[in-house]
Design a protein around this nucleic acid. Structure first.
Lengths: 225, 225
DNA sequence: TTCATACTTAAGCCAGTACTTAAGTGTCTG
DNA sequence: CAGACACTTAAGTACTGGCTTAAGTATGAA
């Protein structure tokens, strides 16, 4: 009996699984990839954890095409998580799983570049640091900026050869401020995807930021996300 | 946030700690030694676990002389444990922490020998196996029995030299059946304590049986405790 | 049919943590 | 006061269990 409780608690006690369960507390169903992002875990690792949670009847899974949607299999699981949350010493910082840090307003793609709050922050940080300079209705990259982008793995000169416009401000509907559209904006997003700073989600335009991404954005641009 | 939940669940998820918490669910306070026995852990190990539980504010401790009494520091802990218990797949076998397996009627000392249900069972098993033989108002040990006791680390011949009576039936008030009193009974208890099959508790006459003890009693005497 | 995506499974490496042995502190008993 | 007892702390060992790399299946798109 007490050993079964230990098993159950152990199942919840693993950080990645705890994050997954926390993300699912809103009662919705999420795909394995989305949950891996929430938990900042590799897809393989998340998959293993999810299968354990399903086996323990914490979660149930519904396959839709190539997606697998996971959700709580009964509300007792949610109760248990909340009972555990009640044991957290200082309760002042308790906040329900918020869309704010994950929602479409926070970080999304706009056509092929980054938008949302994070897109805007990046744009403004680049200007503040003198990496990009606004002139009339477009951006250009300073000499120091060319260096900076090279270190990031982006060859600005190559981008200029593309037929499309290089970089111009794009008004962000959610922020009412500007982010970077054009070849440069697309290159930044591509690079961030490649470096696993952000990852795309299924059919949504929402983009999720990995822990690595958070750290790197802070290191390289002083942005706190 | 979700990480704090993971920490809390991890704390409950360790088998020894889970057993301790389960034992404390009756709301009473127990000494470190008693809890070590409940959890079938060494005193040192239990002590470490207890200090962790206190540090996390799951338990509070009150020192009384050389005893330290542990109990839940608030009822949220009990709620959380029960919420976890609700997640146990098949609930038919759920039983509240019972005194039956731990109480004074189950296993205790009677002066310096073993009494209670376990004392009676041992006595009867020894007779059934022909290790001891009842004659009039005392027990004697058969030739095969002398061998058996030697394997157990008890030299019967040495016991006979003691001034006190060797072995006689002692009516057990709780069982209304007999257990073994006298030098032999005392030697059995001493040996069982030494081998860590049973352990004494504080000021109580109650004796608790370790998992090792349970196994050995089954192996050597076919007793299921 | 070929490629990309979504997800799972297998195998080996690595780290955190429980448990053991050993030693130390404080308390009660004879 | 000596000795037993209740409990804690420290140090070293061992093992469970998570994470990574790698490979495989199935679905959908081109």
């Amino acid at each position: 009996m007490e050993l079964q409780i230990a098993d159950i608690a152990t199942l919840i006690g693993e950080p990645v699984r705890a994050k997954i369960l926390w993300a699912l507390l809103d009662g919705r169903a999420y795909t394995a990839t989305e949950l891996a992002l929430f938990a900042d875990a590799s897809p393989q690792n998340a998959s293993i954890h999810l299968s354990k949670l399903v086996k323990a009847d914490f979660l149930e899974v519904a396959t839709q095409g190539r997606h697998r949607y996971y959700r709580f299999s009964n509300q007792n699981v949610a109760y248990a998580i909340e009972a555990l949350a009640n044991l957290i010493p200082d309760k002042k910082a308790v906040s329900k799983p918020a869309d704010e840090k994950h929602g479409i307003k926070y970080c999304r793609t706009c056509y092929d570049h980054l938008a949302g709050k994070v897109g805007v922050l990046i744009n403004e940080a680049l200007i503040t640091k003198g990496i990009t300079v606004q002139s009339e209705n477009n951006y250009r990259v300073s000499d120091a900026g060319v260096e900076w982008f090279l270190r990031m793995g982006i060859d600005v000169d190559l981008l200029k050869d593309e037929r499309r416009f290089f970089a111009k401000p794009c008004l962000d509907w959610s922020e009412r401020r500007y982010h970077i559209a054009g070849a440069l904006g697309a290159a930044i997003l591509q690079r961030m995807l490649l470096l696993d700073w952000v990852r795309k989600t299924k059919n949504s335009r929402t983009v999720l930021i990995t822990n690595k991404g958070k750290n790197e954005l802070y290191e390289n641009l002083g942005i706190e996300v």
